[in-house]
Nucleic acid binder design. Structure first.
Length: 221
DNA sequence: GCGACAG
DNA sequence: ATCTTGTCGC
């Protein structure tokens, strides 16, 4: 239904539009249902992949998890992740019986050349608050926080606080928690930390596990 | 021109 | 994201 752009120029225009919007802020509350979505692709070499690569996207919230098959819309390209993953990620979240209150997405949000990374874009399409989670920032910069669970330090992009380096567990690399659709950096950090036992938030771990499990299944169609 | 560059 | 062995630590 929703139109994920298939052309680079169209995505860029959509990102400019989304990045300029100011949707109402959503605040994290204890007890909020935090879900996540994750996509993996067919094995077969390193690099950016290709259009049409087999994909499996999983969405997870609470006790429910769903997996949908799909295809990559494009090769990976920094700043244009939505071309590759948007369609299949949306399908997975829509397959959930009940959507979460806030969705964790593997990608940035405000930390983006046009202030509209995949996490923000997906939230806009789904009309769902989102938070981005990545191993490192895309365009923002910031020093690492202390090596102590919960420690955070600002990720700044042209003076804007777009996220936090967040130490989700002592002794491990911090994660980047990104402000995205209807969320600010503080809310992003709270949502991520509230669901962290291991370094990676539990809903994201579960979605990742389910997606890879589906990819490994003997029967594919 | 060269390197960097979410997943 | 994916390709990959061993290795260090709790």
């Amino acid at each position: 239904m929703s139109a994920w752009p298939h052309a680079r120029v169209e995505l860029i225009e959509e990102q400019q539009r989304l990045g300029a919007l100011e949707p109402p802020a959503w605040r994290f509350r204890r007890g909020a249902r935090v879900g996540a979505v994750f996509v993996c692709f067919a094995r077969g070499g390193t690099g950016p992949g290709n259009t049409g690569d087999a994909a499996w996207a999983a969405a997870s919230v609470g006790d429910e998890a769903v997996v949908v098959p799909g295809r990559a819309g494009a090769p990976y390209e920094a700043g244009l992740l939505a071309l590759r993953e948007g369609t299949v990620l949306e399908a997975a979240v829509r397959a959930l019986t009940q959507p979460p209150d806030v969705l964790l997405v593997d990608g940035t949000g405000r930390d983006h050349p046009r202030r509209a990374g995949l996490a923000l874009h997906l939230g806009g399409v789904l009309d769902l608050p989102t938070v981005g989670v990545t191993h490192r920032p895309l365009a923002a910069e910031g020093e690492w926080p202390a090596d102590e669970r919960g420690a955070r330090s600002p990720l700044l992009l042209a003076g804007e606080l777009v996220g936090y380096w967040l130490r989700t567990r002592a002794g491990t690399r911090p994660l980047a928690a990104h402000a995205a659709w209807r969320t600010d950096a503080g809310t992003a950090a709270e949502a991520v930390l509230s669901t962290c036992r291991a370094r990676t938030p539990e809903p994201l771990r579960e979605a990742r596990r389910r997606a890879r499990e589906a990819r490994a299944a003997p029967v594919r169609r």
